[in-house]
Design a protein around this nucleic acid. Structure first.
Lengths: 209, 209, 209, 209
DNA sequence: TATGAATGAGAGTTCATTCAT
DNA sequence: AATGAATGAACTCTCATTCAT
């Protein structure tokens, strides 16, 4: 039955994608079935195919969303470019928080997204995802250049390579901290947060002037 | 039928595991079926179960192998601790080469392995994997301490947290370079290798004295 | 494709269970595959799993049905407790007819069911099956007591042990007659029916006053 | 390697059959694999096929053995035909003991064997089985006739039909007692043995003079 | 005689997807 | 727009059996 009052189709897509995100996070993409997603979203399984051509399309939408969240995450941290170092700290904290709140999305940004945008005639969603990635890059490059201009960051930094390096390193660091949380706290006698603070600081020292 | 010449059982395990590694890399672990692995390895599907109790055991063996290769990769680079910086360079190059030759294994070390060793009474293979990981850590810590002792590395570095940070960052960097190879060469007008060289150098500057 | 007309879901379960019963009878439960059941029932194998969670659920449903049929079989025979001996005759004839029409079900009542209700937290179907069994026992005990009261049955009969004994013996007798039908008619020069009539009478003489 | 010293082939068959019997009893015929049987018997799986053409042949040998044991069981009980009633008691006790010691064999005699000997060009083993069955019948008929002659049993008993009836009823009774042991002890507040004693006595009263 | 090695055939089960309504 | 019903194709895993040695 028409469980739901009339809503914009995009609202349905949102509901479904949200349910899928939770399940993907809990069980992985392959581990979550369309049946489960439908049930969790409160639709019939066949209805999912009204709003998405197939499972992959759900994944693509989530990829886009995760990229957009990442954009907000970064944009917010860099909004007030008062102090370069504080910006960096805020950025790191925002990333951390993002990872903590939406680990699946975070992983998606790092893994899936990175791999895409290369080859194949991709879906519109994937193109958007790529563009948001570009936006993020611009944001970070501007931040970097401002930092150099202010003399807070090393003048010899090449903007784009540096941004990419940072991006890769921060992502790798956060993921490792997450995967090995138990090990870190035991072997290092350090809570994950302090380990990350240490790592973040280490990384900053590679770009600081 | 295609009965094979006599070989040591471990040779069969190797053949199967090698075929599996290639397929896992191409299609992911869940994406590669036992049928495909059998065909690729030149055995019947049932024969796979003569040499491995189940699919997971293949994965575990690959995990162990990838960790052992990583160990060799690192040990070789640090064998002659003549010059700390050269060692670092060699280490980076070895990692790169490893990633280039066995991308699935490399990914495995970073992703799977990192996540394991946490919880559950695991298979013997998984335990070995964990122990090799420990060996690697010791290797790196020794390297770090030697560098500090020689005055080439910052004296305020905390060994274990630094090693873990480096590990996470290097891994993230290499993976990103790999996933975004096309993008990097296009947007940055830089071959992957040079980008990585730049990133490696950046990272080194965070620990150099 | 062979999509079926709309029917109540329970009708589908019936169709499937009926096909399964025939195959189980012919080849045994383990000997009949879900593939065969699906084909015999005119569904695709996957559809079976729409109506039953697994093979065992089909078996359980059949067990319940066979017990319910047995109940009817007995209840009908004992409906008019006019004459104890006639009731007994009717009961035997009903059992015989049941065995002839649904040999697998009959076997199930005797073999499977008897064994169950002992241990494990069972399916709802299995619980129902057990309860129908209890109902049957009550029916028979009442019959016995009435017979004793009327002086037609021995006054020293212990109700429950007697009922159970009769139950076991009648079942064994009917099964043997069925399994050895050919032998009986040849070695004894007696059709199965007359052999059974003889056996039933023999048994009755053990409880008659 | 040749684990075992030279033994007559039949000894090997015995070993294997013995191992199979144990497993069949524990897990059912379909539930026990040739692999397990081989392991339990201390042979390699392929060796099983040296001594038996296939799994069914093992079953057939066991069927024969179980029939032969049944013969001994009965013959021993009837050896001293001193007193008809005592013989009957001994017979029942022997059957009980047989069922307790070798439930799988007992079941086999009742179920499998009964069903065979009808149709198909059967294996030599199956023919022997059939003949042992005949021997048993003769034994019992003689016993019956002796009892009638002595005036202890009803003179109107038809030998073969009576024997068959008794056979079916006793088997059914013992099996039911075994399957429902828990239920019997709970609902009837009677240990299995006493219940059976009651049933045996009931049955005897149907043939006693 | 005895077996290690191999496998074809098939088991039960799952799932993304389709389609008539 | 929404869904109940159905399924083809695939999955992991098992097992009786074969055969070269």
């Amino acid at each position: 039955m028409g469980r739901r009052k009339k809503e914009a189709p995009s609202a349905h897509r949102e509901h479904i994608a949200a349910a899928a995100a939770q399940l993907f996070q809990a069980r992985g993409i392959d581990g979550a079935s369309m049946d489960e997603i439908a049930q969790a979203a409160g639709y019939s399984k066949a209805t999912l195919y009204v709003y998405f051509a197939n499972k992959q399309e759900i994944v693509s939408l989530l990829a886009l969303q995760s990229m957009q969240m990442m954009y907000k995450c970064i944009a917010q941290a860099l909004a007030q470019p008062d102090n370069i170092r504080d910006c960096y700290q805020r950025l790191c904290q925002n990333l951390l928080q993002y990872q903590a709140e939406k680990p699946f999305f975070f992983q998606m940004v790092l893994t899936k997204i990175n791999g895409l945008a290369e080859g194949q005639p991709c879906l519109p969603e994937e193109k958007s995802t790529y563009e948001v990635g570009e936006d993020i890059n611009r944001l970070l490059v501007d931040y970097l250049l401002a930092g150099v201009a202010k003399g807070e960051l090393r003048p010899d930094l090449k903007p784009l390579p540096t941004i990419f390096s940072l991006w890769g390193m921060l992502g790798g660091l956060i993921q490792l901290a997450n995967n090995k949380e138990l090990y870190i706290s035991q072997a290092m006698e350090l809570p994950k947060e302090q380990f990350l603070a240490y790592g973040f600081q280490l990384l900053y020292s590679s770009i600081a002037n």
